[in-house]
């Protein structure tokens, strides 16, 4: 079993390294670099459009206070100290994937297994596990409603209730669920949003690859 796990780890790491290499264009001739550049441009263009439709105010998001999860395992995972509330940058990680979802949202329900898979992928690679944490924010949901979603889809990462639509304050547009925000910790107590995605992930591996690319780029 351990061997299978190790193999999987190696495979995932190899996948990332390959994606880095193709993006950096290491050991490639001029034509290949150009080709990669144009393919990259083509792939990136729609993503930029996606990002443009969502404006996130990192400062506002940084200062929102959410109720801390009651579950001890969740608290430990996020690295939170005791206290009834917490702010997102207090989460002990370099990158935080924030899934804004709702228990009532059918797209979020359909995407739940994919987000679980994303979490599993992250847990499998130690370097990712220690640096990336996922937290779900149930917008307009009570703790009870969030717990129904968590139980139904066996969600192993923490889900936070946001009954008062606090997270809406950080967005200029109406929230559409699911929305994924990736925050990067810049200094203690502050983070900035480096990546946004509106709509379902659909493919956990692709999303993670994209995320790793962003986290290693200068804009990340």
């Amino acid at each position: 079993m351990a061997q299978v796990k190790r193999c999987l780890n190696q495979w995932v790491v190899k996948l990332f390294l390959e994606s880095y290499e193709s993006l950096i264009g290491a050991n490639m001739n001029k034509a290949n670099v150009l080709m990669v550049f144009f393919i990259g441009l083509m792939l990136l263009a729609p993503e930029l459009v996606t990002s443009q439709e969502l404006t996130v105010n990192s400062n506002v998001l940084t200062n929102l206070k959410f109720d801390a999860p009651e579950n001890l395992a969740d608290k430990k995972y996020l690295g939170l100290h005791d206290g009834p509330t917490f702010k997102l940058p207090q989460i002990r990680a370099k990158f935080i994937i924030i899934e804004i979802f709702s228990m009532y949202c059918p797209i979020c329900q359909r995407d739940a297994p994919v987000v679980n898979e994303l979490h599993d992928l992250i847990l499998k690679v130690p370097s990712l596990r220690d640096n990336i944490k996922i937290v779900g924010i149930g917008v307009g949901n009570t703790p009870y409603e969030v717990s129904v979603f968590k139980k139904k889809f066996n969600v192993s990462f923490p889900l936070i209730a946001d009954d008062n639509f606090l997270v809406q304050k950080a967005l200029t547009e109406n929230i559409r669920t699911p929305t994924f925000l990736v925050g990067k910790l810049v200094v203690d107590g502050k983070f900035k949003i480096v990546f946004t995605k509106v709509g379902a992930i659909k493919n956990a591996g692709e999303f993670l690859k994209e995320l790793v690319t962003v986290s290693n780029s200068p804009r990340g």
């Binding site: 144009f38 083509m42 263009a45 729609p46 993503e47 459009v49 996606t50 439709e53 949202c105 797209i107 559409r176 669920t177 699911p178 929305t179 509106v198 709509g199 379902a200």
Partner: peptide
């Protein structure tokens, strides 16, 4: 062609969740 592709993909990618 590239712009058309980018545009069609962007419609796919930027479709609101609802």
């Amino acid at each position: 062609l590239w712009q058309l592709l980018a545009l069609s993909l962007s419609w796919g990618a930027s479709v609101p969740a609802d």
